[in-house]
Amino acid sequence: MIAVEFKHVWAFYQGKPALQDFSLQIKPRERLVLLGPSGCGKSTVLRIAAGFLAPAQGAVILDDTIAAKDGRLALEPEQRGLGMVFQDFALWPHLSVGEHLAFGLKAQGVAKAERERRIMETLRLVRLDSRVDARPGELSGGQQQRVALARALVTQPRLLLMDEPLSSLDFELGIVLRREILALQERLGFTLIYVTHNLDEAFAIAQRIVVMREGVIVRMGSTEEIKAYFAGRARAADTAAFPDAPGQTESQG
């Protein structure tokens, strides 16, 4: 599985810095959560990792390959071998569940028989094998989330990016699905970068948590360390209510 490194990355949104000298290393098979309030730059990290955005300065390295550097993409998104689950799932309304999964496999040139086998296998994994012909509009919110997850997994990505994938679901369904995500990651072993602003979700998913604010890392550590960091403070459901961070980073870079 893939190792990811961000080296002194700067990114700008509408002229303002979205990431400021951002450096981070992620190990293969690691589950890393980016935690922070809206606008702190955590989704920008994912967009740069996916190749939707080139860093204005700095480099992104996937394994030992430079994927982007100083404003230029060296690898296009489709050349990176990644999967991504979007906040609103980004399902294609005109395609069936099966066609969603076939899209990436066809682009990879996977033969038809193998493609069908992998589609059914992945749909069984997310318990949607009976809905292979359904369109997104015919599915519940939880099922749509599973389709988005299956689409991301079917190509056997080396790195899975998840951008607040549970934020549009109700609380109970969110708990069920994050257990499923954990189980799948354990079983398939992909590297996971997970973005959320919810503390409970972060603690449930992460092996390591990076706390961000205004485009910089303000704290980084294991789940236990970050729990301890917040332990003495009023437990906020939303990171928008975080007290001012001390401005120090641990084991950064």
Binding site: F86, F103, A148
Partner: peptide, 28 residues
Amino acid sequence: VNPQMEEAARLYASWPRVLSRITLPGIL
């Protein structure tokens, strides 16, 4: 067109394929 739908497709395919399979059917 919702940009995330195109981004989801861009993870697997180049722009011509994304336009023909995702973007244009969406605005057909």
